[in-house]
Computed example of a mutant assay.
Amino acid sequence: MLPTPDNSECSRQAKVRVHEYPDGQLVIFHGPRCIGRYQPDGSPITQEDSKHKVA
C-alpha cells in the first residue's frame, strides 16, 4: 500500500489509476489529478525531486 500525501484531495477511499512507467516509477491518479509519485522502492517523489531530475 502506498500512502497518499497529506495534502491530497482524496481523504476517503476512492477509485484511482496507478501508472507504472518503464523506469519503475509509480504515479497515482484520481480522475485527471496526479495525487502521488513514487520511486520503484515505494518512497515518495517530492516536487523538489521532480524539479532536479535530468531527462
Rank of each mutant, 00 (worst) to 15 (best):
1 M>Y: 11
1 M>A: 13
2 L>K: 00
2 L>Q: 03
2 L>W: 02
2 L>G: 00
3 P>Y: 10
4 T>K: 06
4 T>M: 04
5 P>T: 05
5 P>Q: 13
5 P>S: 09
6 D>M: 08
6 D>Q: 10
7 N>G: 12
7 N>T: 06
8 S>P: 00
8 S>T: 06
9 E>Y: 02
10 C>A: 08
11 S>W: 09
11 S>Y: 07
11 S>Q: 11
11 S>G: 08
11 S>F: 06
12 R>I: 03
12 R>A: 09
12 R>V: 02
12 R>S: 10
13 Q>E: 14
13 Q>V: 07
13 Q>N: 12
14 A>T: 06
14 A>F: 02
14 A>V: 07
14 A>K: 15
15 K>W: 08
15 K>S: 14
15 K>Q: 03
15 K>I: 10
16 V>G: 09
16 V>L: 10
16 V>P: 01
17 R>K: 07
17 R>L: 05
17 R>Q: 15
18 V>H: 05
19 H>C: 02
19 H>E: 12
19 H>K: 12
19 H>V: 10
20 E>K: 03
20 E>P: 04
21 Y>E: 14
21 Y>W: 03
21 Y>D: 09
21 Y>A: 04
22 P>H: 07
22 P>M: 07
22 P>C: 04
22 P>S: 12
22 P>G: 11
22 P>I: 09
22 P>T: 08
23 D>V: 00
23 D>M: 04
23 D>G: 01
23 D>E: 09
24 G>D: 04
25 Q>I: 12
25 Q>H: 11
25 Q>K: 15
25 Q>A: 07
26 L>M: 06
26 L>Y: 00
26 L>P: 00
27 V>Q: 09
27 V>E: 07
28 I>N: 03
28 I>W: 02
29 F>D: 10
30 H>L: 12
30 H>K: 06
30 H>M: 01
30 H>R: 06
31 G>D: 15
31 G>N: 15
32 P>A: 12
32 P>I: 15
32 P>Q: 14
33 R>L: 08
33 R>T: 10
33 R>C: 13
33 R>E: 15
33 R>M: 07
34 C>M: 11
34 C>G: 14
34 C>T: 15
35 I>H: 00
36 G>L: 00
36 G>A: 10
37 R>P: 08
38 Y>S: 03
38 Y>K: 03
39 Q>C: 12
39 Q>T: 12
39 Q>K: 14
39 Q>P: 10
40 P>Y: 01
40 P>N: 05
41 D>S: 09
41 D>W: 01
41 D>R: 01
42 G>F: 05
42 G>C: 08
43 S>M: 15
43 S>I: 14
43 S>E: 13
43 S>F: 09
43 S>H: 07
44 P>L: 09
44 P>G: 03
45 I>V: 15
45 I>Y: 04
45 I>A: 04
46 T>N: 02
46 T>E: 05
46 T>V: 00
47 Q>L: 13
47 Q>P: 08
48 E>Q: 05
48 E>R: 09
49 D>I: 13
49 D>L: 01
50 S>M: 15
51 K>E: 13
51 K>M: 13
52 H>W: 10
52 H>I: 04
53 K>G: 02
53 K>H: 10
53 K>R: 11
54 V>I: 08
54 V>G: 03
54 V>Y: 15
55 A>W: 09
55 A>H: 03
55 A>Q: 07
